[in-house]
Design a binder for these strands. Structure first.
Lengths: 204, 204
DNA sequence: TCGTTATGCAAACGACCGTTCGTTATCCTC
DNA sequence: GAGGATAACGAACGGTCGTTTGCATAACGA
């Protein structure tokens, strides 16, 4: 079931195809992946690549699901055991920034890439991307709500506004790093996030 | 020279092709535009479409240039005559939000779309997209610097940080509207921008 | 050990890709 | 009116796209 490295036969092949698809998609977009190029990169035939999925659309959905799992493992899991509230939200942002600065996905944030690629289309992949985006925003929102409930953020704060702003900043970091290749993208993002969370380390 | 609606013969055709290409690109990405589909939509032959540009890459560059001109006309020009400083920066943000909420580009912000599409590639189009992004950030930065110089933003404020955050918020608005179809995307963006600019209309 | 079931390959399909070529219609200038 | 430039056409090029089909071969359960 798990797409980790070992496994036997078909499951292993399937995981390798998905990994290659995720890499390709993070660079050029989920729609730009191509059966033929994946086959070339993997040293397989086109039929062998598409076989386990039946359809390119199913392969796209599998790649998205895999990228979600990677994101959860890299960003959420490290802070999952902490207590809900501002502390965990702060740790989550650090985790997120570290992820955006890594090369886990060679082309940067997979969801941002997929969102731009599919927000003007219709179909099941678009729906899955939208749902992923919604789910992650719900996570941020829940965490912000916990922080408000504990009095760590001002009463009356709108948790959805916090979630929106944190997500926007992450998008900005991703673009600064991937498009403009700014060295200090993470630093700018950190400052912005800390200001949103009231953890001002600069002038009032 | 200007791609406005009237004009004679070839220039007019060229402008029509570019308009169609911009529309298509804002929906599905600058790389996903296709000579054949443009020809179909325009009732022309493929040769007639690619003729004025010679190459798809040149057509992409022309589409990007046109989108830049539209952006400047819709967002910058309305505030260009005001005095530099916080007032104009605020007006610029309103102008930007209004633009993001309009359907000038059917698929949302052209640059965000193009950035995601090309930030993992190489070549002249990528370079042009990057330069556009840099240029716009420089505009925001210059405006923030003016506001700081006039004492309308706290001394010691980093104008590049302001530019980064405003740009990130716009990206967030675009994704909220285009992917998640949130009704109040502009409202969230406005609140976030005003907070960045110290124009707090919510609780301290 | 032998059928059965997976697993992946080679080849081919029709469709569309970007680009090139030669030709035609239309206009402007002598 | 004749002649030349211009603009767009239709047809074709070699490739690549996603998908389907039939055939090997490897693995497995009896």
């Amino acid at each position: 079931m798990s797409p980790r490295s070992s496994a036997t036969g078909a499951a292993r092949t399937r995981a390798e195809i998905i990994d290659a698809a995720v890499g390709q998609a993070s660079l050029e977009g989920l729609e730009a992946i191509t059966i033929g190029r994946l086959a070339g990169r993997l040293g397989m035939s086109k039929a062998g690549v598409i076989g386990p999925f039946g359809t390119k659309e199913e392969l796209q959905l599998a790649a998205l699901e895999s990228a979600n799992a990677v994101f959860r493992r890299e960003v959420w899991d490290p802070v999952a055991s902490a207590e809900p509230g501002l502390g965990r939200l702060e740790a989550l942002m650090e985790s997120w920034l570290s992820f955006l600065g890594s090369d886990v996905f060679p082309g940067g944030c997979f969801i941002t890439q997929a969102a731009a690629d599919f927000d003007g289309r219709e179909g099941s992949v678009r729906a899955a991307v939208e749902e992923t985006s919604r789910l992650w925003e719900r996570v941020l929102c829940r965490e912000a709500r916990a922080a408000i409930g504990r009095g760590e953020l001002p009463a009356g704060t709108d948790p959805r506004q916090i979630a929106f702003e944190l997500g926007a900043i992450a998008q900005g970091v991703n673009q600064a790093r991937q498009l403009r290749r700014e060295q200090d993208a993470a630093g700018r993002g950190r400052r912005a996030m800390r200001r949103v969370l009231g953890l001002t380390d600069d002038r009032a």
